[in-house]
């Protein structure tokens, strides 16, 4: 298994769609894909004609679906990899992908604990994989998602989360906007606060599994708040992405 898990595989882009002005969902066909757990990620390697190659790690956005794997990539200006994936790569083109990897920031449908998902910006991606895996498994574990973005146009998967798929019964979604809010929105624009997680999260007594993903500052704030609200640090799993997510 190990050799297979770490082998670089050819991955062909078979579909793509824009999530926002600067983020794109890429659907890759990867022959021999072994399946994955929600929250796992892949390493993507690009190699230039002169042989120079570079790689980045991206969370998988989709639930397991045969040999198809979806990534959602945020364009990081001046990044080495993301501008290529978001603006240049065309359907039919190939990159190299290895994985799935990661065994810490994962959710298994067999778990019966309530789940709190806290996402900042493109940190929603692995959390969406968890929501999709729950839907695929017809899971009944209660899920709450708290999703912080700058303004409404920055939301990923907005249509899918709004659709209220019957299989998503038991999933509550709360949006927090940090810069600009829609007309009539009750919460003023601002960063994540204790009140936000107190209102939209689970009481610590419910002993939920908490998954927090986003930029480093966001993740540290959210984890500190959850601990202050009484959540067991061992049930708070975090994933940060730095500037080189690019």
């Amino acid at each position: 298994m190990s050799a297979q898990r770490t082998a670089w595989r050819d991955a062909r882009l078979v579909a793509a769609r824009a999530e926002t002005g600067a983020a794109r969902t890429l659907v890759f066909k990867i022959p021999g894909w072994p399946g994955h757990l929600a929250g796992q990620h892949v390493d993507v390697r690009l190699t230039a004609e002169d042989g120079y190659s570079t790689q980045r790690s991206y969370s998988i956005a989709s639930a397991t679906d045969g040999d198809l794997v979806e990534l959602t990539v945020q364009n990081v200006p001046d990044g080495e990899v993301s501008p290529y994936l978001v603006e240049v790569l065309e359907v039919g083109d190939e990159v190299e992908i290895r994985g799935p990897v990661g065994g810490w920031f994962v959710w298994r449908p067999s778990s019966e604990r309530p789940v709190l998902l806290v996402g900042g910006g493109s940190g929603i991606v692995p959390l969406m994989a968890m929501i999709r895996a729950r839907r695929q498994a017809a899971g009944r574990t209660p899920f709450r998602l708290v999703y912080s973005v700058r303004e409404p146009g920055q939301r990923f998967y907005a249509g899918e989360l709004r659709r209220h798929d019957p299989a998503d019964a038991g999933l509550d979604v709360a949006y927090l906007y940090t810069r600009a809010v829609p007309d009539g929105w009750p919460r003023p624009a601002g960063r994540l606060t204790v009140a936000d997680l107190n209102t939209h999260g689970w009481p610590a007594d419910f002993e939920p599994d908490c998954y927090v993903c986003g930029p480093t500052g966001f993740v540290e704030t959210a984890a500190d708040i959850l601990i202050a609200l009484g959540h067991d640090p061992r049930r708070i799993r975090t994933e940060r992405f730095g500037p080189t997510g690019g």
């Binding site: 190990s2 990620h41 790690s57 990661g102 065994g103 975090t238 940060r240």
Partner: peptide, 20 residues
């Protein structure tokens, strides 16, 4: 934000070790 976390090591370490 100048750092990531250990999740980013999953691929590089999986190249060496048999388990995550």
């Amino acid at each position: 934000d100048a750092y990531q976390d250990g999740n980013a090591l999953a691929g590089p370490l999986r190249e060496i070790f048999a388990v995550d």
